[in-house]
Simulated scan of single mutants.
Amino acid sequence: MHLLCTSDQLAEGQSRSFVCADLPLLAVRRDGRVHLYRNRCPHRGVRLDWQQDRFLDDSGSLIRCAVHGALFLIESGECVTGPCEGQALEALDCLEDERGIWLNAQP
């Protein structure tokens, strides 16, 4: 397991980027739950963030690809609009405990 950050470093409704063993990751906290994905658009393999730790659309309800504007559901990573519609972000298993948020697998 790899510690990504303390729980207070990912506030409700916020997103954050990480790199773990050279694997770019993104995390979003929604409704108290952390959702962790590989930071890679399924369309072209590019990083999704448009600025450091900025992955969400203007409403804060979807993950947006900075390059192509594709929109992904936070809870499942499914692309709901854009060139990769029907595909999904690669979800990664994470765990949150009193020490923080962990990547719960080998990258």
Rank of each mutant, 00 (worst) to 15 (best):
E96F: 03
N39Q: 05
L95E: 13
T6G: 06
R47A: 14
R29G: 06
L103V: 00
S15F: 01
G45Y: 04
E85K: 05
V80Y: 10
L71K: 14
L89F: 14
A88G: 06
A88L: 00
R99L: 15
R54G: 05
S76L: 15
L56M: 03
L48S: 00
T81E: 11
L73E: 09
S61W: 10
E12S: 08
M1V: 07
E85N: 06
R40S: 00
A27C: 12
L26H: 01
D93S: 15
R54V: 02
E98Q: 14
D8P: 13
M1Y: 09
R30N: 06
L56A: 02
A105H: 10
C94K: 01
G45I: 05
Q9Y: 11
C5K: 00
L36I: 02
R33G: 07
H43S: 13
C41W: 02
D49M: 02
L3A: 04
G77W: 03
R40I: 07
Q106S: 12
N39W: 08
C84D: 04
F18V: 05
C65R: 03
D53W: 13
R40C: 07
R47H: 13
L89N: 08
L4R: 12
H2G: 07
Q9A: 13
H2R: 07
V80I: 15
R40Q: 09
G86D: 05
R99K: 15
